[in-house]
């Protein structure tokens, strides 16, 4: 299977979207991604180890993220990940899709107050 065949279509599964979002700020290792996702979603998304690592492996395989060199001070046994160009494009596309949904919701006046 080439990368093209496997490039995911939208909508993205939530773990994929959140992992991509987390990696747009900095290269992180697995545990770091889980912590970042948990932190930025106020604990509503809790990636279990099985979901997290299977998803990471699959994302590396289809080229959304890459294994990158660890920063100087980091534990050398840990694998770090960085988002690829394809991953960046995909996360923007998903964000745009979600934004248009939100716009639609706002037009129909279904958003609760304060959102």
């Amino acid at each position: 299977m080439t990368h093209h065949d496997a490039t995911p279509a939208l909508p993205l599964r939530p773990p994929v979207f959140h992992i991509l979002l987390a990696l747009t700020r900095a290269d992180l290792h697995g545990l770091g991604i889980a912590a970042e996702v948990e932190h930025s979603t106020d604990g509503t998304i809790d990636l279990g180890p099985g979901t997290l690592y299977r998803t990471l492996k699959e994302m590396v395989r289809v080229g959304l993220i890459d294994e990158v060199d660890a920063p100087e001070a980091a534990d050398p046994r840990r694998k770090y990940y960085g988002v690829t160009e394809a991953g960046r494009r995909l996360v923007s596309a998903e964000a745009a899709r979600l934004a248009s949904l939100v716009r639609l919701a706002r037009d129909r006046d279904v958003l609760p107050d304060g959102v």
Partner: peptide, 23 residues
């Protein structure tokens, strides 16, 4: 309980969602 849910989540196939692929 969280881990049990995680363990029971089926293997994510190709990333493209087909139908309901919520974990």
């Amino acid at each position: 309980r969280t881990i049990a849910r995680d363990l029971l989540t089926p293997t994510p196939g190709p990333l493209a969602p087909r139908g309901d692929r919520r974990p």
